[in-house]
Amino acid sequence: MSEEPARPGPPTLRDLRGLTQARIALGAHGAGLPTGAALAFGLDHARAREAVWTPLDVAAIREGLRAQGLDSVEVRSAVSDRAEYLRRPDRGRSLDAESAALLAGLDGHGQGFDVAIVIADGLSATAVALNAVPAAAALAARVRRAGWRLAPVVVASQGRVAIGDPIGARLGARCVVVLIGERPGLSASDSLGCYVTFGPEPGLPDSRRNCISNIRQDGLAVEAAAGQMEALLRAMLVQGTSGVALRREDPADPTALPGARN
């Protein structure tokens, strides 16, 4: 300490801020945060709350899909409003009766589909508005190139991850890919999650899903995520399973759940 060689100025934590995204070295006035830091925290929380509570703009999503040459249908979960969505995860996992009937009429002329893409609001409409259409379009292009039969994209409002199970089952799809808004953190409100399941049917455990998370501008890029989705679909269609039972050739591939919270 005192015997150490002199250095240019005393070190401060501010110099080391680059080592973590944690809010270190904020400074203090008594016990209080500096005004700027207090208001910045408030703004981040307001953004996260807005992401949770903003309704999904289904028309805009469908228009975006149309511009990418993708057909879509609109469904709703059994939830009546956002407050119920937050309180009743069970209802966010099932379809309302009208939506279930609509999907039953789209079973691919009796041949079913290899892949169904579901876009659900989850806990961040912001993430879906920013990232879902590009992710769906990137995946659809890969599905077409692979020669797989793709169902119309299903846009589900007030949906949880497992709403992909009844949707996939109604469509007769072999695999379902759910693109969903992740629970917003304070630093990022726009993370899209992706859950891929083989043989969707209501009541599947989360251990049957494979997850890719943090799809956003400053996280996992859309094209890279679509590549991972394609690799998962390829493995699932060959092996006839998904989740913890799926064998992975590339150790860098996304892993199976359990970490999912949505």
């Binding site: 944690a22 270190i24 904020l26 945060l33 925290f41 953190g185 304070l186």
Partner: peptide
């Protein structure tokens, strides 16, 4: 307690 009330790993406050 965490820096600035923001847990950057568990994503909660």
């Amino acid at each position: 307690t965490v820096p600035g009330a923001d847990d950057v790993m568990l994503n909660y406050q």
